[in-house]
């Protein structure tokens, strides 16, 4: 392939891989900004991916081309409800948030696979007929060079993801709710003294993170795999967690990190057909996102500091 062909191939693939990561990572930003660690993103994504495929299979005849979009909404709702479990455990029951997240991950994949076997009597679902369509952005895709790179054959969900990042930035940094969210994650006692309901804000934040991770999972399953099995999500949730940290708990940063990780994944699967990279083993691209996250945390790529009260339950009256 020529260099230009490679670029035209890699960049759309990068954006398609990044979209689910953006949704899930920004979900993580909401939760952690409010002081609740959410390791359970993987499990929430699994639930979203499963629900999306299930809805799509059952209602494709009823809703036609609207099905994948409605499936995103249903997946959002189901994962949001599922995330309440994490909220109850880590906020009300004062459980260790990491342990509760691990339980959510195990439970998500177990419930999804249990249901798949119950409904389909085999290890994975059928393939969906109505996946999220690709389209060319009118007018823009005719621009030379940029057009084929960014505006040809893209998923509508990718545009949604970038819109979401901007929206999340606005909510977290420009609205009263965002200020409350951040203050609850930095210093819950001070926030409580100012009359902010810490518990309520944290519940809302965790439920938002569940909903967004659900959408992320449903986008992944309806664009990348088109069915659901045990290996459908396979670490995308943890990669989103990495993107959130690499993006320093900032929505735009998380989007940038997700795009970069999407790029690494796109390279990993296509490096063998690229003349300059065919001799580089794919394993380097596979481990790149994770290695970079460790380096970012270690402070080699600018210091990444978690919200101060992240991981601690807030107990009224304790100092």
């Amino acid at each position: 392939m020529s260099l230009l062909e490679i670029v035209y191939f890699i960049i759309p693939l990068t954006i398609s891989y990044a979209a689910p990561l953006i949704f899930t990572a920004i979900g993580g930003v909401f939760s952690e900004r409010a002081g609740v660690v959410n390791i359970g993103l993987e499990g929430l994504m699994v639930m979203g991916a499963f629900t999306g495929i299930l809805f799509n299979l059952f209602y494709a005849d009823t809703f036609g081309s609207w099905t994948p979009w409605l499936a995103l909404l249903v997946a959002m709702a189901v994962s949001a409800i599922f995330s309440i479990m994490h909220a109850v455990a880590s906020i009300t029951f004062r459980a260790d948030q990491v342990v509760s997240g691990v339980a959510i991950n195990m439970l998500g994949i177990a419930i999804a696979l249990f249901s798949v076997k119950m409904i389909f009597d085999k290890g994975q679902t059928d393939f969906i007929q109505q996946s999220i369509p690709r389209f060319n952005v009118p007018v823009l895709h005719e621009i030379p060079f940029i057009g084929p790179m960014f505006f040809t054959g893209i998923y509508g969900s990718s545009i949604l993801a970038i819109g979401l990042a901007l929206l999340a930035w606005f909510i977290i940094y420009k609205t009263p709710f965002g200020l409350r969210l951040r203050s609850v994650g930095e210093h819950p006692m001070a926030a409580d003294t100012m009359g902010i309901n810490v518990t309520k804000i944290r519940y809302i934040a965790v439920i938002i993170s569940g909903g967004l991770a659900g959408i992320g999972g449903a986008i992944y399953s309806q664009t990348m795999t088109n069915d659901f099995g045990h290996a459908t999500i396979n670490g995308q949730g943890f990669m989103a967690l990495a993107a959130m940290i690499f993006g320093k708990w900032h929505p735009i940063g998380a989007m940038g990190a997700a795009l970069f990780f999407g790029f690494a994944q796109a390279l990993a699967i296509s490096s063998s057909s690229i003349s300059y990279l065919e001799n580089v083993p794919a394993v380097y691209f596979h481990i790149l996102p994770y290695a970079l996250t460790i380096l970012a945390l270690a402070g080699f790529i600018g210091r990444a500091n978690a919200p101060k009260a992240s991981g601690q339950p807030y107990i009224k009256g304790n100092r």
């Binding site: 943890f238 481990i287 994770y290």
Partner: peptide, 10 residues
């Protein structure tokens, strides 16, 4: 926690 999760995938 985060480092060990990343080390798992590596």
């Amino acid at each position: 926690v985060i480092v060990t999760i990343m080390m798992n995938y590596i």
